[in-house]
Design a protein around this nucleic acid. Sequence first.
DNA 1: AAAAAATATTGACTTGGGTTAAGATTTTCA
DNA 2: TGAAAATCTTAACCCAAGTCAATATTTTTT
Lengths: 192, 192
Amino acid sequence: MYQEILSHIQEYIQLDATEVELFTSMLVRKKLRKRQFLIEEGSSVNYQYFVVSGCLKAFEVDENGDEHIIQFAKENWWISDFKAFFDESNSKLTIDSIEESIVLGIEKNDLEELYRKVPKFERFFRIKLTRAYVALQNRILSSLEKTNEEQYLDFQKAYPNLEQRIPNYMIANYLGIQPESLSRIRKRLVNN
Amino acid sequence: MYQEILSHIQEYIQLDATEVELFTSMLVRKKLRKRQFLIEEGSSVNYQYFVVSGCLKAFEVDENGDEHIIQFAKENWWISDFKAFFDESNSKLTIDSIEESIVLGIEKNDLEELYRKVPKFERFFRIKLTRAYVALQNRILSSLEKTNEEQYLDFQKAYPNLEQRIPNYMIANYLGIQPESLSRIRKRLVNN
DNA sequence: AAAAAATATTGACTTGGGTTAAGATTTTCA
DNA sequence: TGAAAATCTTAACCCAAGTCAATATTTTTT
């Protein structure tokens, strides 16, 4: 049950049996059916989540009611509204499942306790955040430098096999283009 | 000399005299004249920098030789090529000064030693990275949701007073539009 | 298996911002 | 201060992607 998250964490820090016990005792398992909400806009965000299986998306709804996907999360990814989680503010993001999914949540207070008792976890999340920060920088640079076609190809490389699990209109949304445009890009790519 | 960086850090963690001494002993001061490079593309990146005064920009040069600005850094901001710094890879970013600037650098080995000896610094940078991550998420959401005019107004809000210190063509570059377009937007704004 | 819902494609038309080019204005520095 | 460099603005034209609308295809549900 905890093997995925433990081996994920132990890629970065080493844990002894007591630490594993403390950490896993803090985890809450949630099972989501397809299209079920994990975090709803406007609610408080008490958990950050590790995806054991399945796939979710985080998006913001704009003033016209349109969704804008900021992140997909499949197996071994972390997802939450990190701003709301850290600020204890209300969520501006919505997170729901694209497939039936299993996630492990850790509560904010537990996480703070974990940082106090096992400071290595500060290190773990510092490293994860550094990588996440760099990934977002690259996404921005890609949007500044590249055509939509190139960004689509980048997406396929960055998230191998994810495309088969997600409808095209969500990929278009993530890329900031209309589904019609993605359809034209895909057509161009198969013809060439 | 160290008062800015120390009060910046002590917003998040408390340091005693020994810790202050250890930390400041690791800092290297660099003074840059306008247009001087801090990090050049292709070089190794041994430092991350805190800006004491002045203003710098980090950008990537694309295959056509065009620059794309990913970040400005003024007083109390951190800047580096964090990917290259952490991976010990060669820099894909270039960083140079927009104004005469003073920065404090900390070397990678020293930072690792600091983490070992004063784990609170892991906490400090974890918190800073969380905020930086959220800021980049917001920048991406802004680019997905908003018109160029709205993004320009967001930039002015997010970086008050910075606009007066930076040429418009760099702001246009940061926003991913042509200077001509920014000029049109600015004209529209004064007329309305 | 049929109906309903969700997803994907295509075509016609429109438009915001890119491109090119020229000139105006401001800043830098010898 | 004056020349050179850097920066900003305006105009004309063009194109990639948005919009709107219709239809096709796939998936889900009953």
